[in-house]
Design a protein around this nucleic acid. Sequence first.
DNA 1: TATGAATGAGTGTTCATTCAT
DNA 2: TATGAATGAACACTCATTCAT
Lengths: 201, 201, 201, 201
Amino acid sequence: MARTIGSHGPKTMEAIRKAGLKLIYEHGFEAMSLRQLASEVGIQVGSLYNHITTKEDLLYDLIKVHMDELFRQFAEIRAETDHLEPVERLKAFIAFHVTYHILRKREVFIGYSELRSLEPNHYEEIVALRRQYERHLIQILREGESLGLFRFGDASVAAYGILTMLTGVCTWFRPHGRLTKEQVIATYSDMVLTGLAPQNR
Amino acid sequence: MARTIGSHGPKTMEAIRKAGLKLIYEHGFEAMSLRQLASEVGIQVGSLYNHITTKEDLLYDLIKVHMDELFRQFAEIRAETDHLEPVERLKAFIAFHVTYHILRKREVFIGYSELRSLEPNHYEEIVALRRQYERHLIQILREGESLGLFRFGDASVAAYGILTMLTGVCTWFRPHGRLTKEQVIATYSDMVLTGLAPQNR
Amino acid sequence: MARTIGSHGPKTMEAIRKAGLKLIYEHGFEAMSLRQLASEVGIQVGSLYNHITTKEDLLYDLIKVHMDELFRQFAEIRAETDHLEPVERLKAFIAFHVTYHILRKREVFIGYSELRSLEPNHYEEIVALRRQYERHLIQILREGESLGLFRFGDASVAAYGILTMLTGVCTWFRPHGRLTKEQVIATYSDMVLTGLAPQNR
Amino acid sequence: MARTIGSHGPKTMEAIRKAGLKLIYEHGFEAMSLRQLASEVGIQVGSLYNHITTKEDLLYDLIKVHMDELFRQFAEIRAETDHLEPVERLKAFIAFHVTYHILRKREVFIGYSELRSLEPNHYEEIVALRRQYERHLIQILREGESLGLFRFGDASVAAYGILTMLTGVCTWFRPHGRLTKEQVIATYSDMVLTGLAPQNR
DNA sequence: TATGAATGAGTGTTCATTCAT
DNA sequence: TATGAATGAACACTCATTCAT
């Protein structure tokens, strides 16, 4: 009763994206063959080309959709917290970032590790989106600094450090492991906010 | 009439390792072909096999040598700082880790991103070495906590967070860029130590 | 713009088997390259893999089909001669064996000489089939012996000797040579039956 | 205390021939690599070329030496039996042929199965020697026929049949198996002589 | 839209052979 | 004579992609 062989209609593309996500996450983009992918979907390799244009295009699509979704959800968070002070906005950012990266660990992982397999145009586009996302955090840090709420050597270095630390969660977090998502958020939120606090140099 | 071009003798292996490091860093292990590698070294592709046993073995060799060197240098640091209190040992760890990861950014990057291309035995060995390295940091954190010097939610989460943040430096640091290595170390050292400080919850 | 040269569809597999039979017979399995084979068929080497799984699998297929055909034809002979006495059944066996080995000399030759290139499982299967075939001859000899029609030192040795002699015909017989197939059968039939006759020790 | 690594002096060639015989018998000439051979001998692959000129030449040498030895021993037998009548000479031939083929099963096997890997000149030479050997048997048969001692359809067919049967012994005979060499000789000698006997048509 | 058969370039690896040391 | 490093061609096999059906 397993996967329907010879899947039809508009569901096929969704099956391809799902299988592609899984295989690229597990083996890497270069190491995944379209034969594997077709086999996972339950169609012949030639049939893939009724749904994708090239292998690279599938990768771009997966990453682009993920970035769009990241921005869409982030826009909601910002709308809700725009009027708050930097400390609260930073807390909200941390909670959002960790949550998203735990729930979408495969998309996120691919979005970092397989960037170099993108064509130049696609690569530039995704990197630009990532930069834009990073600037939102830098902006929060700078506002907090100018209000005397945060203190750090360099805003970019601090932001990269924070982002790297938070993103790293998707490489080791296990859904039903020793710690809950909330505990991880609390630990990091506390560490980051304390680490930026001005009073104790 | 053979051998008119290319390097000879014991130097060849060193050239292969150097070129392999460069190409794997730039294109990824899967995407690097042995023809590229041989061409970079200036020998025929078959000649590679006078020096390596398999492509995977070259990868393992590069990572293993890097891990051994990491441990060798780290042992020196520990010998120098073993008698100091946790705060000083943490500072020394941060300075060492960042320095090493800036100087050996390619080895470090490969050591993380290409692990999945290792054979199971090699994979296990390298992951075990990495765990051992991580435990040293966890140990410092735990000692500091028991002396009331540090405070954090969970030692492993904190250690992973710190390590990820520090390691991330090798993805964006540029040797002659806006910031010196010392500035980066100072920023992170300050952020980490402040973030772990107990007085301001 | 693809596929301008070479054969299509279900005929290709038959062309591969035919060319494979010829090339393996002429050069040996190890010495035949898939490039030769593809060239003989008129397709690209990669296209072979739309029809075969491995080179060894082609060899196994050729030998297995030949063994199956041998058994199929032999079953007919047995059905026709089952009710006869051993002398007549031995004559029928000799005539059948020589005829088949002359008509299928290439399959037969490969079926002996290339066995060692088969994977262990395939090797065991083919050897078991051959043993089964041999036992039919041994059975005829034993029945004849118990009726006092044949006499020999050891049934297996006699059977192997007879089979080897008869099989050898495929290494030197030339279809339009000095002797007809019937003459060869007569010579061997006479020699074997006389050789087994009890009256003249 | 195994094989001396870096074997020296005139013994090396003998070690190469011995190892070559074993490996070609086990894997076939095409399937044996000079790396395997060198490893078996305990030297480096390049060193082989101080003793052989090409891989094919080693094969030719093994077969030629075997054929020369066959002729040398056969000459002795003929000297001893030249004055006897055909029946006795045939018995001597059978005993000699079976004995030699049992003791030198590997040389004999290679001498048949790897002929096609010889260069044309070498191939012709060996085949000519084999024809010469066969003619001795044909001569015995013809003499016996003209004396009314033997009867057969065609001398060549009979000789090929007898030779094939006797030679086949080297594919299934096991030195310490169910039957002794003498039993095999007796069985075949009886079968052949009876099979050629004129009295019972 | 799915299939199956094709392309042609590419993969890691092995080969027999050469030769300076 | 032995070594180790080289050559260049070859190996079986896989790849992403195309396209008539």
